[in-house]
């Protein structure tokens, strides 16, 4: 077996089959995938959720995870945020010629561990290899299907006046973990990416309340974007208290250093929920018992004023508009 991916690995040749049969399929195999037909075949009934996402994170290995774990978590979380129980995932790889096979092995092992942790199966996949320089080492796309329990209708457009806004933990950890590895910016961060599958956390929340109106994982654009989306989609105002927002000192320190606002930094293992006021305490306490919700906190509420906007109450008692980010989040010197 070569130690690097060659163009031939993507050409449907013997090498391609070896790559799939010896490296890619074994760790994640299951009865559906093992049939190796052109598409996965399975039966499902009830209301379904279906989603897809692509992953181009650079670098592909970062403190707290890698592109493989990220690709499973992203799709598992997107399904969970619509109240679905994630079941089946697809996994498509676009590999740059020259990627070490040992690195691919580590990434597939990470896909396996994360899928197992989330209790989902990779049932179909594809592999393509492109010339050196045409992709940045590895791109991954995953799509996923899940089943939504009857009567459940969770959406960014369902937040209602009086709902409490609950955040499941500290913000900005993934974005800063990746940025700390970037060329020209290296710094040592005492916190790692929060990349994690949240389907079990959501299931535990749904078990104690059926008044969770909105759920979303604040990935790119951070907490500020998700809150702005809720306010706009639901046509409500949202008021947030700055000093209630959990944030790790390391993320705060790195953001001070680079002149960034942590409210706009990506998360990959956090969720924001709009919950009816009477259920807020119940939901909060069950979240805190889950390993991914230990720092969960109520950070604000849905209001009737300033519809479509998010207002942040600052520590010193004044308030300001919290808007969507515009363009790439760049470190600044002034």
């Amino acid at each position: 077996m070569n130690d690097r991916i060659l163009l031939a690995h993507g050409s449907g040749s013997k090498l391609s089959h070896d790559l799939i049969e010896k490296i890619l399929a074994p760790p994640i195999n299951n009865p559906i995938l093992s049939r190796m037909d052109d598409s996965a075949v399975f039966e499902l009934s009830g209301k379904l959720a279906f989603t897809t996402d692509s992953y181009v994170v650079n670098p592909i290995f970062f403190p707290g995870g890698n592109i493989g774990r990220l690709a499973v978590c992203g799709t598992v979380n997107d399904l969970s945020m619509s109240g679905a129980q994630p079941l089946y995932l697809s996994l498509a790889l676009i590999i740059e010629e020259g990627l070490e096979i040992e690195e691919l092995r580590k990434i597939i092992e990470s896909v396996r561990q994360t899928a197992e942790e989330a209790g989902v199966q990779i049932v179909t996949g594809d592999t393509k290899v492109v010339n050196r320089g045409k992709a940045d080492r590895l791109f991954i796309n995953t799509a996923g299907i899940g089943v939504i329990a009857t009567g459940l209708d969770i959406s960014g457009s369902m937040a209602r006046e009086g709902d409490k806004i609950i955040l499941s933990g500290g913000i900005g950890e993934h974005g800063m973990a990746v940025m700390s590895q970037r060329e020209g910016l290296q710094f040592r961060l005492p916190v790692v990416s929060d990349c994690a599958p949240l389907n079990k956390l959501v299931a535990e929340m749904l078990a104690v309340s059926n008044n969770i109106h909105s759920l979303r994982d604040p990935t790119r654009g951070g907490l500020a974007s998700t809150l702005s989306e809720f306010a706009r989609q639901s046509g409500v105002g949202i008021s947030i208290e700055e000093d209630k927002i959990p944030i790790h000192d390391g993320v705060r320190g790195a953001c001070e250093l680079l002149g960034l606002d942590p409210l706009y930094i990506a998360n990959e293992g956090k969720l924001v929920a709009a919950v009816a006021p009477d259920d807020a305490e119940k939901v909060l306490s069950v979240m805190r018992k889950n390993m991914y919700g230990g720092q969960a906190a109520t950070i604000g509420e849905v209001t009737g004023e300033r519809k479509g906007r998010v207002v942040l109450k600052t520590r010193i008692g004044s308030s300001r508009i919290l808007d969507m980010p515009t363009g790439e989040i760049l470190p600044r010197i002034c």
């Binding site: 020209g184 910016l185 363009g327 790439e328 760049l330 470190p331 010197i333």
Partner: peptide, 30 residues
């Protein structure tokens, strides 16, 4: 190599962000 602040500043016709998209090797440094 430039501080991040300079990437989006509009010149007469373009900015460094567009120059990067057109193939310029432009890197942000701290």
């Amino acid at each position: 190599t430039t501080f991040g602040d300079m990437l989006k500043v509009p010149g007469s016709y373009s900015n460094l962000q567009k120059a990067r998209a057109e193939g310029g090797d432009i890197r942000i440094v701290y």
